[in-house]
Structures are given as C-alpha cells and as structure tokens.
Design a protein around this nucleic acid. Structure first.
Lengths: 221, 221, 221, 221
DNA sequence: TATGAATGAGTCTTCATTCAT
DNA sequence: AATGAATGAAGACTCATTCAT
C-alpha cells in the first residue's frame, strides 16, 4: 500500500515522497491524530529519516501546507487567461479550483480543514494563500463593475465581504461536489457562477436587495 | 476560573456544567488537544464524575455537538417568522445565525471546525444539522421562485447546489464577521442578502449567467 | 528487588518511595543514563504515577538533590556540639559527614558527582548546600584563630581558599573511605584532622593533632 | 567554528582533530549529552570517519581520557625538579597542576567530572592516572619526613590517606581557582601549601609555609 | 581516504480510562 | 453523589551506529 520500498534515493526525491505520505495521512486523520509512525511507514522510510529531513511534526505539516497551497494557487493561476473579461476569468478560475480540489481531496482537507483548525503556526500559513485568492476575486469584482460601465460605488468593506462570501461559497461547494456523486467541476463552477455573478450583476445595475420597511441604504441595512 | 465548586448538585445541572466546560475547551483547543483533565477541572468536578455522567471523550464531544447544534437550529428557527415572504425569512434567519454564532464562538468552533475535522462519529452528527438548514434554505429558494410567479424549472440538484453555496457563504461570513472588528451581525446578513438574493432574483427571472461561446442550457452546461 | 508492591498508599508515602528509588538509580547510573522506566519499576509504581507526582525527570532529580542535601546538612549539624572548641567541632562535623556519606553512598554520588556534572538547574542547587558547609568551616577557622589568641591576619580570600581546600579534601576522602575496605568514618576524620589542623610539617615533626580527652593513638583512633 | 575543512589529511592529524573536538564537546556537554553528530561537525569530518578511526563513542571517550590524562601527568612531571627538597617539589608540582588545569578547562572537566561520573570503563581509566599522582605525592611525604630526620612512623595507610586528602584538596582548589576571578595558579598553589604543609594550627600560630627564597618560614629548611 | 543515506532501539512524556472507597 | 490513587498504551523525538559508494 505504501510507496515501493526503493533504497538509497536522493534527498529531494525522498522528501517529496514524505510530503506525499504526510498530506495523505494529515488529510485523512487530521493533524493531531496523524502519527509520525504512520507517515513514515506510508512513505516507505524509517521515522528518523523523516525527522532528519523535515525536523518535526510541526515543520512537516507546515511543509505540506506550503507545498499544497502553492500547488493550488498555481493551478488556479494556470487555469485563468488574464485577457478575458472578468466573468470569464472567474469562471475559469472556479473551474480550475474545483478540478484541483476534486483531484486532490487530501490536500484540500489539509488546507481547508486541518490547517485552519490547529492554531497559529499553521492558520496564518494558509491565511496567506486565502488572502491571495480573495484579493484576486476582489479585483475581478471591481473589474466586472468597470466593464459594466458602472462606477463602483460599492464601499471597500462591502466588496471585501462579497469576495469573502464568494470564496466561502466556493470552498463549501468544493466539499459538496466531492461528496455528491455525479457533480463535476464544471457543474459546480456553473452553479456558483449563476449564484454569484448574476447576483453581482444586479448589484452593479443598482438593484440591491433590501429588507423592505427598514430604510435600506443601497448596499447595507 | 472554573465553575464554583459546590458539592452535591442534581445530575442534570452538573451535566450542563460539564458540557459548558467541554464546549469551551473543545472550541479553544480542538478535539484532540483538549484533555479530559482540563475539562474536569474547568467544570469543577473530578474526572471520574465526568466519566460517570458522560461515558467517554467521544460521547462527551458528541453530547456537545448535539447540544450546540440544537441550540443553533433553535436560535435560527426562533428568529424567523414563517408568515413573511421568503426573502424576509432568509434575512431574518441569517441575522439570527450571525447573532448566535457571534455570541457563542466556542460553540461555533465546535460545530464548524472541530466536528468536521475529526472524522466519523462526529462529522455525520453535525451534517444532520447542516442538512436541516440546507433543507430550510432550499424551501425558501423554491418559495421565492413561486412568489416570483416563476414555475421553478430549476432542477433539483441545481437548487441543492445553490442552497449549499448559500449556506457555505454564510458559514464563511460568520468567521469573517467574528474576525473583522466593527462588522455586526446585521451587516453580515445584509452583505450576504445582496450577494445571494439579488443573484437569485436574476436566476428566477430567467437570466442566468453563462459562459458565452459554450451554449449553455439555462442553468448548467 | 524493588519495593514491595503495595497498592493504594497515600501520596506522601509514595513520593518518598519514588525518591528512594530515584536516588538509588541516579546515584548508580548517573542522571542521563538513568531511565524513568527503571526508577518507576524500582519504586514499584507505573511511570505515569511518577510523572503525576514529580512532574519531570528534571524535577525528580531536583527533588532528590534537595532531599539529600537537606539530610546531609542536617546530619552534620546534628553531629556537632556548638559549645566545644573549634577543632573539636570540626572533628565532630567530619565524623558525622563521613558517617552519613558512608551510609548513603548513592545519595553522596547524587550530590557530589551527578548534580555537579549536569549543568544549571542542578549545579546551583547543590552549590547552595556546599556554600553552607564552606561557610561553617570558615567560621570554625576564624574561631580557631581567635581561640589561639591570634588576631587572624589571614586575608579573607586566603581563609576562603583554606575552607575550600578542607571541604574538597573531605569530599575526596569520603570517596576514598568508601572505596577502601576497613577505613571507618572515625579514621577518615582523624586523618583529615591531622592533615588540616596539624599540617604535614607538624606531623613530620611528631606533633599530630588529637582530640583532647579521647586518648587517641598518635595518628588514628 | 569547527576545524577548517581541509580534505585528505594524514590519519594521525585527523585523529587529533577529532580528539580536540571530542574533548571540547565532552567537557562542555558531558559524556551522555554529547552527540557524535556534534563532535563530527566540530571536527569538520563526517560521522562515518569518526567511527572508522575511533570505533565507538566509548572508545572515543576513552581515547580522550588517555590523551588528557597523559598530558596532565606530563605537565606536572615537567614542572618538577627532582633534585629539590620535597616541599619545593610539591610546590612546583601544584603550580604546574593548577596551570595546566586552568589552561585546559574542558580537558579537566573530562578527567575530573565526566570520567568519574560515568561508570566503569572510564572510572578506572582516570583512576590509574590519579593513582600515579597519589603515589608521587606519597613519595614526597615520606621524603619530607626523612628530610626532617624523623623516622617515618607514619603507618602506610595513614600516609595514603594524607596523600589522598592532599590530591583531593588540589582537585577542589582547581575548580575553585577556575571559578574565582583573579586567583592565579601561583596563589592557589600557595594556599594549598600553607594548608597542607604548615597546617591550620601553624597558620594560626603565625607560622605559614613559604617557598625558600620567598621569606621562608620555620618549617622548610 | 571519505561520505550521503538510512535505521533499530530506546527516551521522555501524555492521555483516556478505571478501581476502591 | 463523588473522588484520590493508579495504569496500559501510545506518541514525538534522538542517538549511536552502519551500508553502499
């Protein structure tokens, strides 16, 4: 079940094998429940070698987070053509996101669940990645507004909230798509575009929803 | 710091004290890092008593999840007047949701982070609550469509995905609102209504977003 | 070989058993080579109980040092009658010292060898005891000078050096007496009194020191 | 910080580098806490090379003890002119001893603390050196008695005890001199000569020992 | 002569859990 | 109703030591 036990490999290769194993175990068992023993065994090496190369459980976990965060951001970046209109960029980005998370469920579990649940060295590590994505989405929202020839009078915090909501919805749909058989990445992306972009379109057209009787300002109550 | 050490209390009261302590410790430390020692100390009782009443760490955690899931659902239910239009119901429900999670961060951490991160006995426990909420939201979406005099030709899975996305966005915004100083429950709810309902409105009016060249059907590719 | 395995004893008693075992193991194996497993086994308890009561290997070692340092100082103090002349006080103190170290070789190993060899938390712990003894000896030297009706023109550092040398010689003789069969505490004390109080020069000139009333042979009892 | 990493040196040289590093690490960390890794690194070689040349940690430590014991004995021997009277020989020997230990604190730590604290292969190794020194001192005492025209009616064991005490005092003063700023090797030697040769009694009577040319007191002739 | 790669064995420490009262 | 005393089992981490080149 573990990697084929080939002896004497160069360090760089072994390190990747260890990270592969660690992502799998961390993703499935959780950070605390994962044991270094199990990781070493799955990697096909002895425990001391894991410590020699990766230093400690914390460092190993951090290395996993970094590698997988980088891979996810890279996958999304590679899936987006920057010369398209904002909505198309978002659509492509979401597709790449759902594809990558669908193909790497353990990595996604590490980033989305484990890293955020286990406090400070890790939370900020993944928060950096998330902020990068939120910033990207924020830019797309503003670009979309510009493209719709609407001066974005959306206040900054409002846009931040919208981006946050969109990213949160995407994260949530990733789990749902993985868990629901027959839902493809494309379908998940389409669902979210319907939900998000059509809504944003209305906002940009100056037609926000508001609770009726309560004197709504344009965007907040 | 722990509960006042009063001896000889009725069982029901002691159990609640223990659950209070457990929710706090689980919420702050995480399921695995929480120790029964610390919980017992914070509850002001001896460890054997915790075991006498709650059986095991797993059972204790499950009891926490059940109690807090019930409390959250109840808070949302109590905040919604069922005779209002769908959008108003959603608005009220979101307000109640953000208020409750904001006031009970440890409980929310238990439900949103800890329970989902630690595998099977627990994940399905909280999934049940989540499905209840998703079902409620699904009803509201269908009701909204009906109210808009649109026969809901939205396919069932599509609606499920939309509800899922909405709930996911709400969960995400709850964390964001808690972490961003100066964002109230009302504001979070307003942001999400703008994002979601306005978008849904367009969907209901038959104007879904679609990637241009790919001739999508009205809701999915 | 270990303590009789009696179950359920009050904490204070168990702690002493643990310290007994620890002193023995630490004294024989050395601090680092001693294993908590072995100590627990010799004490007749499980390892977690040792940690519950004594916290850590470091704390356990410190507790050993404190207990045995206290016991040694107490033994010396109890062996000295303060109303005698300085040389008699020194004689009695040395006798008590050699008796105690001879009867508790593991404790002496802990204090003299182990504690000083393993760095800072421990070295200063035993240094405090040693300073107490050096101060006592310093007082005796000054008192002896006074009794000899000589204004002690010995400079302070000189006296400190003499006391240091005397204590060092005593420590060294303790090991020698333990290792040389047939050397009693009295004999070790007599040898050291001759050496220190009379001096080699006087010895060679046939003028050994002797406790007054006890009719000693020229060099040893 | 380690030795300059020059490749391909003759074995003898490399071995000395390794012993240098080992003495330093053993002296500072202690035998058990010293790691072969650290020693190899400080020596500027790979760990397998250390094993190739020195076999094992035990053998390496033994080699350190032997080298440093030899060096210390040699230093003392070289510092003593055998044609002088006994007290002068002792005075010179002590001076050489304090000088050498002061200049090689790690080596002295290895010999005095580490070797004796870690049981059997090592304790007897250093005991051999110590016996050599004790025998030398014993001879000086007997010679001194002869020079004083006293037939030494000192029984053999008594003389052994005196020599033991003198050496123990010297060892103790070595640590004291190293730790007390401003105390030179000469001063330490003088203090000890006063203590040992003159004796406290004489000191109190105002009859200190002194090397001849330097205001000789009544006991050296 | 010299080393990068690798490990078996053992250490300290913690935790959920139970027994006897 | 409640607890002081006690433990089996397991986990992170380190080290002396060797193999293959």
């Amino acid at each position: 079940m573990g990697a084929v036990k080939t002896k004497r490999m160069p360090r760089a290769v072994r390190e990747q094998q260890m990270l592969d194993a660690a992502v799998r175990i961390f993703g499935q068992r959780g950070y605390m429940a994962a044991s270094m023993d199990e990781i070493a065994e799955l990697a096909g090496v002895s425990k001391p070698l894991v410590y020699l190369y990766l230093n400690s459980k914390e460092d190993l976990f951090t290395a996993c987070i970094r590698r997988e965060a980088g891979a996810l951001v890279e996958a999304v970046r590679a899936g987006v053509r920057r010369d398209l209109p904002a909505d198309r960029q978002l659509w492509e980005g979401l597709g790449a996101f759902f594809t990558h998370t669908g193909e790497n469920p353990d990595a996604w579990s590490v980033l989305h669940l484990q890293a955020r649940t286990h406090g400070e060295p890790f939370a900020s590590e993944v928060a950096a990645m998330r902020e990068e994505i939120v910033a990207f989405v924020t830019q797309l929202i503003l670009a979309g507004a510009r493209e719709a020839h609407r001066d974005p009078d959306l206040p900054e915090r409002e846009v931040a909230g919208l981006a946050e909501a969109l990213v949160g919805a995407a994260e949530s749909l990733a789990a749902w798509a993985n868990a629901t058989p027959g839902v493809t990445a494309r379908q998940a992306a389409a669902t979210l575009m319907n939900f998000a972009w059509a809504g944003l379109g209305d906002l940009m057209a100056g037609r926000p929803w508001a609770p009726e009787e309560e004197q709504p300002g344009p965007h907040t109550g």
